[in-house]
């Protein structure tokens, strides 16, 4: 199980790096889907099967397909790939990579003296949903209103 965890983590990190370095948008999207599926496996191993399934269905399924549809609609083609290549240089990455690397180093330094063995206890759908429709019912309603606002504004913005 622990080997699966490290394998999925490595796949997630490598495919995210490939996504950031990618010139072709559609290829980048496919790498992002791979990364999200690897994170879904990590969720499953951490004992959150409901979150893993939702990650696969909603993130890798719905949201990424939405991206793909919009990319097909815009139909940018080879021209955008060449443009991306001209924008991407080694120089662009230096300052952001140093800053993010410092941030990450600080974070890892904080985590260094923090040792807990995680015994994954499976938290199933029933526990999650009994909380979701118990104390968190207001949050669910607010989320539905947020989705409605997203729907209306996406319709309005994408209209001709």
């Amino acid at each position: 199980m622990i080997i699966l965890f490290y394998l999925a983590a490595a796949i997630a990190i490598i495919s995210t790096v490939c996504m950031v370095l990618q010139n072709n948008i559609v290829h980048g999207l496919i790498y992002l889907i791979l990364s999200l599926l690897a994170v879904a496996i990590v969720f499953f191993l951490l004992g959150a099967p409901f979150a893993a399934v939702l990650e696969a269905i909603v993130y890798a399924g719905a949201i990424m397909v939405l991206f793909l549809f919009v990319m097909m609609m815009l139909n940018m083609g080879q021209h955008s790939v060449d443009q991306e290549r001209s924008w991407m240089g080694g120089r662009v990455f230096i300052a952001p990579a140093i800053m993010s690397g410092l941030l990450l180093a600080q974070f890892l330094n904080v985590l260094r003296d923090y040792e807990f063995e995680l015994v994954p206890t499976e938290i199933g759908v029933m526990q999650v949903s009994s909380l979701l429709f118990g104390p968190y019912v207001l949050a669910v309603e607010l989320a539905s209103i947020l989705l409605l606002a997203g729907l209306v504004s996406a319709y309005h913005l994408a209209k001709k």
Partner: peptide, 22 residues
């Protein structure tokens, strides 16, 4: 060990976050 160290899970989250930030 058959258990996943929690700091490795948090490290994965941090690394992914920094990659997204880059």
């Amino acid at each position: 060990p058959q258990t996943i160290p929690i700091e490795h899970g948090l490290m994965l989250a941090g690394i992914l976050f920094c990659l997204g930030l880059i």
